[in-house]
C-alpha cells in the first residue's frame, strides 16, 4: 500500500470529511461495478452501494494495512451484496445452472428485445443471468483488472476455484452466443 493511501485513511480516522469524500470518489466505481453486477434490482443498487461505504467508514479503524484498500473494500462490497441476496432469499449459487445452462434473463425475451441491437448488448443480458459468484468473479477480473489471488481474498475461495469459475462463466456465455448465432442462421 502506498503512503498516500495510508495518509488518506489516517485523515479519515481523524474525522476529516474531505478525506472521506476523496475516498468515496476514488472507489465508487469499483463498488458500483460489484454491486451493479451482483444486485439485479436496480432500485436497491444505490442503497447497497451506500451501505458498503458506511460499513467501510465504520470498520476503517480495524483495517490492518495487510491488503490493498481496494481488496478490502471489494470484500465489504461482495459481502454486503451476498447479505442483501440472502435476506431476500435469492439463490446465491445454483450448481445445476452450470449443467442445465439455466439462464433466466431479467427480460422475458432478451433476444427479441435486443434483436435490433448489437451482440454486446445481448451478451450483457446473459452476464446478468449468470450465477452471482460467477458475476462477481468476471466483474472483478475484467472490469477491475484484479488477479486470481486478489479475487480469492475477496470472495474467500481458493484461487484455483476462481480461475475455474471464470473459465466456466466465459464458456457458458460463449455457448449461449453460439446458440444464438445458430438460431439466427436457421
Amino acid at each position: 500500500m502506498d503512503t498516500e493511501e495510508k495518509q488518506l485513511i489516517k485523515q479519515i480516522l481523524d474525522g476529516d470529511t474531505r478525506a472521506f469524500k476523496i475516498f468515496i470518489e476514488t472507489y465508487r466505481r469499483l463498488v458500483a461495478h460489484i454491486v451493479f453486477r451482483m444486485v439485479a434490482n436496480s432500485a436497491d443498487r444505490e442503497d447497497v452501494c451506500q451501505d458498503v461505504f458506511v460499513k467501510a467508514y465504520q470498520n476503517l479503524h480495524g483495517f490492518q494495512f495487510q491488503s490493498k484498500i481496494s481488496t478490502w473494500l471489494a470484500r465489504i462490497a461482495c459481502n454486503t451484496c451476498l447479505n442483501y441476496l440472502e435476506k431476500r432469499r435469492l439463490p446465491l449459487f445454483d450448481d445445476r445452472a452450470l449443467e442445465e445452462m439455466n439462464f433466466v434473463s431479467h427480460n422475458d425475451d432478451p433476444y427479441t428485445e435486443a434483436a435490433d441491437s448489437d451482440i454486446n448488448r445481448l451478451l450483457r443480458h446473459y452476464i446478468d443471468a449468470l450465477p452471482v459468484l460467477f458475476r462477481a468473479i468476471v466483474t472483478l477480473y475484467h472490469l477491475d483488472g484484479m488477479k486470481y489471488e486478489e479475487i480469492s481474498q475477496i470472495l474467500e475461495i481458493p484461487a484455483g476455484t476462481v480461475k475455474s469459475y471464470l473459465f466456466r462463466a466465459r464458456r457458458m456465455l460463449r455457448e449461449k452466443l453460439v446458440e444464438l448465432e445458430q438460431e439466427v442462421l436457421c
Binding site: 451482440i119 454486446n120 451478451l123 450483457r124 475484467h142 466465459r170
Partner: peptide
Amino acid sequence: DVFEALDC
C-alpha cells in the same frame, strides 16, 4: 465477443 462484453 464474450471478452469485449465482459470488459465493457
